[in-house]
Write a protein that binds this DNA or RNA. Structure first.
Lengths: 243, 243
DNA sequence: CACTGGGTTTGACCATGGTCAATACCGCGC
DNA sequence: GCGCGGTATTGACCATGGTCAAACCCAGTG
């Protein structure tokens, strides 16, 4: 088991982020964490619009967000594009590349962000001698799958407003996990990104924000969103967060 | 590497299905395959409507479809339900349960089907001594993630017709992989399942089928679909199958 | 400080596809 | 064979949300 001091030490370097997503409590000892940590390399910070990896590029590493945020998306041969997800600190990216040597989507920074790199070859090496880490890796990948399924459920909700409500609530949940104020969201992505993510038109999203504001549900100011009535938000979502 | 005879031998028992989805060429030797095979247990066949596992149930095993087909779906607390996928022979199910001890969705047979069970405890045991299998497991899970992303891309297509076209084409592709005739689909799921899967209304799907039929694209007879003009189908999808 | 430009909001209009309802079809058991 | 029940098709209607277009706001720049 890990003592507080050691975790705090790790927190300061890149490994921490990895640990955050390799969610504790895990079966990893302090030594294990240090081994894991040794596979993590810091990278130059990304500026808004910079690409971390591009769809089709050959796969080499997983990435963990340290600060800032990124989006992942696939683009079809004709301009059509689908945003797959938004990634906050602690999130792991590039998992889809594990199947077949190539990243199946692109990742782009939404604001100035830093990530660290887990070169897969090294990760494999380390985890070969650490069954706990191996299992943890599997859990993380499977977790990404479940996240994708949640996205799907959101897209299935026929009502536009429910989709957006769902989106906002999940953002708030993620903020809470990061021990940020879950009432006060700072959305780094554009309306158009949100719309695409939800399968809606950009204008619809904009309209819905103003509607929710005039319903007293939110206070919207550009990219800053304050949740005023969480209860009403939950009502809109309909159904609990069971999945 | 595996010789033909050995593969054929395995084909006869449950392991084959697993191998099919643990896609070859893999780094597994014949011995490895037999070890893998030893973890697979046949189960009593399921009848149409039978449940393989239920959302929320505690996770214990992965399942490989041997014959027939199943659907997976999540249901929210109020009647709303989302179909996540349809599973044909060779497909692995239950992967979402790896994250947190519980299946995040339910699985139900669409017709009389047989599956085999890979108890996870045993799988872990075997793969502990087989790095190749371990890596392969990771690839499979990641592959499931990518499949989910493809579903998402389909849901993102704004046009109902494009969604259905996409769906049909992917079904044909899967048929081809199973070396069935990819022109002649036997859809085991109901219109309502398809509609839900695509985020459409059941009536819309029905209408689209008849439209496509009168456009000379398909021949539709209830659950049997014959693809007459694959080229036109591809046109409808727009964009290539790049992802 | 004005100017420019991207992202955003708002409005008006209309098409796509959802809803409700009736009918048709097929398989199955009696 | 007949009737029944579930599934699928078809029709009519209308609401939601997409599209086009204009106005707006703020940030960054000269």
């Amino acid at each position: 088991m890990t003592s507080h001091v050691d975790l705090d030490e790790l927190r300061r370097n890149c490994g921490y982020s990895a640990i955050h997503d390799f969610r504790l409590p895990v079966g990893l000892s302090v030594g294990d964490l240090q081994a894991l940590n040794s596979t993590a390399h810091d990278m130059l910070p990304l500026d808004r619009g910079d690409t971390l990896f591009r769809q089709g590029e050959s796969f080499g590493a997983l990435y963990v967000v340290r600060s800032g945020s990124l989006k992942t998306f696939v683009d079809g041969s004709e301009g059509d594009l689908q945003v797959l997800g938004f990634h906050l600190p602690g999130d792991i990216m590039g998992i889809g590349g594990l199947t077949n040597e190539h990243y199946p989507c692109s990742a782009e920074a939404l604001e100035r962000s830093s990530v660290c790199e887990l070169r897969y070859a090294q990760l494999q090496e380390v985890s070969a001698s650490l069954p706990a880490l191996h299992h943890q890796l599997i859990r993380v990948i499977s977790g990404a799958l479940v996240t994708e399924q949640r996205h799907l459920v959101m897209m299935g909700k026929q009502q536009a407003q429910r989709r957006l409500a769902f989106f906002i609530r999940r953002m708030a949940d993620r903020y809470e996990r990061l021990s940020r104020d879950p009432q006060e969201l700072k959305l780094s992505m554009s309306r158009s990104d949100i719309a695409n993510y939800l399968g809606l038109a950009l204008e619809t999203v904009s309209r819905l924000f103003t509607r929710m504001e005039s319903d007293g549900l939110l206070a919207v100011n550009r990219k800053s969103i304050r949740i005023l009535r969480r209860d009403l938000l939950n009502d809109l979502c309909g159904g609990e967060i069971d999945i």
